[in-house]
């Protein structure tokens, strides 16, 4: 905790904290999947979560928009504050929260509907568009930001499930940004993408950073180094190290972090 603070002070520019997590614990039944995690996710910043498989990156990410609510055996404890408001408060409707904190999942999961409807669904249920023209505009803008517009603009009525894996993932990204979330959680968004699409998505992430806060889980050290300003390293449910990306990759403090980024564990 003290470490984090020092890094923050070292930061070139200090930004407002968007999500503040304190003493977070997650249990799956008896399995303790997240242990005592304290993280501050900053606004207008890309935060990368790295760590070996099964260390709890996805689990922690899902805490941030209460997707763990859907898992019966999952129990979440600790304090998560979005803009100072406790998101696990009884009065919070997870539906409203998820409109603010969007998510792109590890596995592409487009709706079995048309490409257009996939993107338009969020804006429709949140009433973001006043009319059809509005909606068309949102859809086009989102698909452009998802770096997939050129590939699908002629077949918006085709089913989203008929796209290739990488295209599906970009469609999911477009769907997530269509609702204009304030925080975007991305769980390995590029694991199914080719280098070109990956570059496009990274560009998108960089662009999103201008306005939102982005949290990205990735297994690619290079990607974490390229897109993020902050990096958190998880290991066996613990947050081992959290700080400036440059710092973590060049001068890690924990030996476990060092062995992971140099490829010795994980």
């Amino acid at each position: 905790m003290f470490d984090t603070q020092t890094h923050k002070d070292n930061a070139v520019e200090s930004k407002a904290t968007k999500i503040e997590c304190r003493d977070c614990q997650v249990y799956y039944g008896d399995t303790h999947a997240i242990k005592d995690v304290n993280v501050d996710i900053e606004d207008k910043t890309v935060t990368a979560f790295i760590g070996p498989s099964g260390c709890g990156k996805s689990t922690f990410l899902r805490c941030l928009n209460r997707m763990n609510d859907t898992i019966d055996i999952a129990r979440v404890m600790g304090s998560f504050k979005l803009d100072g408001e406790e998101i696990y408060d009884k009065r919070v409707d997870p539906v409203q929260l998820r409109a603010k904190v969007g998510m792109v999942f590890q596995k592409p999961n487009p709706f079995p509907k048309s490409i257009y409807d996939n993107v338009a669904y969020g804006p429709r249920i949140h009433g973001l568009a006043r009319n059809k023209a509005d909606l068309d505009e949102i859809v086009e803008k989102s698909l452009r930001r998802g770096a997939i517009w050129d590939e699908v603009k002629d077949r918006l009525d085709a089913p989203g499930t008929g796209l290739s894996g990488g295209q599906q993932q970009r469609l999911c990204i477009a769907r997530a940004v269509a609702t204009e979330p304030e925080v975007l959680l991305m769980d390995e968004p590029c694991s199914a993408l080719d280098p070109i699409a990956t570059a496009q998505v990274e560009e998108l992430i960089d662009e999103l950073r201008q306005r939102y806060s982005v949290v990205i889980v990735t297994h690619s050290m290079q990607q974490a180094a390229r897109v993020s300003q902050k990096t958190a390293f998880f290991h066996l449910g613990n947050l081992v190290e959290f700080g400036e990306t440059g710092q973590i990759f060049t001068n890690p403090e924990d030996p476990r972090t060092e062995s992971y980024i140099t490829g010795r564990i994980g």
């Binding site: 539906v95 409203q96 709706f111 969020g122």
Partner: peptide, 9 residues
Amino acid sequence: IRDAALGVG
């Protein structure tokens, strides 16, 4: 599919 729907709010 449920996750996707819940995920967009």
